[in-house]
Amino acid sequence: MALITCRDASFSYEGRVAVSGLNFEVRSGDYLCLVGENGSGKSTLIKGLLCLKTPSAGSVFFGDGLRANEVGYLPQQTAAQKDFPASAYEVVLSGRLSRRGIRPFYAKADKLAATKNIERLGIENLKNRCYRELSGGQQQRVLLARALCATKKLLLLDEPVAGLDPLVTQELYREIEKINRETGITVIMVSHDISGAVRYAGHILHLNGTQVFFGTTAEYTASEIGAGFMEGKRRGITQ
């Protein structure tokens, strides 16, 4: 059974359909990239997969006994967060909260997991720094470490490389790929960076208000829509 199955699903905001006609499957261990223009419904779909929104039509099934406290999420940052007075360690540790249930305090295992994920992303030097004093790339890493603390099966990333310089972007992609390969955690990522998406992801879901394409990356690059989108992006960049 697939980890996530969407059947004719639609999501809407205040009665206005944001994205519809979703038919796809994500299997455990997959690396799926959501691509599409601004306002094509990518972030809405992520919210739907996180159960923050219920589908307005059709259905989304979660298989393999997937539960909310087994999901890690890297959201787009809000303005309020950027100047939040908290240490990086506090932020990372908060990812373990969902495992605690109603137990009020973190156990040793939680603190160990937080430290381990901080080491995995190579941000030990930031551990006691204040979150608001970190650079954009450093903040993204801290949030990724938090998402890793929260996840057991599924990692949802909403534009993890937005606003990062090319070097940091590549590093972050490599880390995400490594996590997917080494731990078998399913990765679903929204990205505006189509070249990064086809380079690392196993599957592509292209949205444009509806589902335009779903298949493997190889099929996508060979398809007309995929080639067209990549060409358009490239032309947009060279212009």
């Binding site: 890690g72 999420y73 959201p75 506090e90 908060s94 969902s98």
Partner: peptide
């Protein structure tokens, strides 16, 4: 702390 720092994350993770 979790609800204050990032409500969506907290809600999504249960």
């Amino acid at each position: 702390f979790a609800v204050t720092f990032d409500e969506n994350f907290a809600r999504a993770t249960g």
